[in-house]
Amino acid sequence: MLDRVSTPATVIDRPVSRQTAARTAAARTAAIRAPAMRAAGKAAAGARKPSRALPLRRFWSTLLILAVWQAASSAGLVSPQTLASPLRIAQTAFDLIRSGVLPQNLLVSLGRAGSGLAIAIAVGIALALIAGLSRIGEDVVDAPMQMLRTLPALALVPLFILWFGIGETPKIALVALGAMIPVYLNLSKGIRAIDPKLLEMGRTLGLSRMAVIRHIVLPGALPDLLTGLRFSVGISWLMLVVAEQVNASTGIGHMMMDAQDFLRTDIILVGLLVYALLGLLSDLAVRMLERHLLRWRPVAGGAR
C-alpha cells in the first residue's frame, strides 16, 4: 500500500532535481507511514481485545488452586480450624447472607467508610483550594499537610480512642484522616499545574474569581482529583479494617474478630472476601466516574 501511494509522488516530482524529489518522496512516505502505523496499532489493539474479555485460560490456575485446596480439606490434610474449605466458605457465606448477619454488618461498614470518605473529600478539596489558589494559603496549609502525610494514620488509633472513645467517631475520623491526604495532595498539585494561559483567558472574558474556580480551576484539576480519589477509596477500606478490628461491636471487621474467638476460619475468610469485593467494586466505580467525567479527553492517547 505504501508503494502504491508513494509512486505517483515520485512521478510528479520527476521534473524537479533528483535530490529534491527523493527528499519529497521520503517526506511523503513518512507522512503516510504515520497514519499507517496508527492503523497498525489499532489493529493490534483489536487483536488484543478478546484477551480483555478474560478467556477461560486466565481462570485455570485459580480453579486449580481451589481444587487442590478443596481436595486437601476433604482429605483431612488441612484442619478447618486452620483453613476452611472453599465449599464450607461458600456455605457459610450463604448462611450469613440468609440470616442477615452479613448484610447488617456490611451496611454498618459501608456507612463508616462512606461518611469517612465524604468528609475526606470535602475537607481535602477545601484545603487544596486554599493551598492551590493563594501563596499565603499554601504556606499555611501545605506544611502541616506534608507533615501529616508522613505520619502513618493507623498509628493514631490509640490517640483517637482516647479522644473520641470507642463509638463511631474514632472509626469515621480515622477513615477521613487517611483518605483526605491523597485528595489534598493530588488536587493541590493539579490546581498548581493549571495552564496560566487559560486563567489569563478567563480574565480577558471578565470572569469572576468564583467563575474562574468553577469553570477553569476545578475542571482542569479534575483528572488529578480523580487519581487522588482512587487512592483515597483504597485507603478508606484499609483504615476501616483496622478501626473495626481494634474495637467495634458491629461491622465486617467485628464479625471477623468475633469468628476468631470461635476458631471460625470460614467466617474470617468470608469477611476477607467481602473486603476484596468492596475494594474491587469501589475502584471500578471510580473508574467509571472517571470515564464519564473525563469524556472530553481524546481516546487512546491521540491527544494533539
Binding site: E200, G202, T204, L207, L222, W296
Partner: peptide, 24 residues
C-alpha cells in the same frame, strides 16, 4: 468591551464548543 483572540485558541478542553463560547 474588549475581546482578545490568542495565538493558541485557549479553549477549555472540558467544555463543549458552545459552552466555551458562552463562558462568562
Amino acid at each position: 468591551q474588549v475581546a482578545v483572540v490568542f495565538q493558541e485558541s485557549r479553549l477549555l478542553p472540558w467544555k463543549r464548543v458552545r459552552d466555551n463560547v458562552m463562558l462568562g
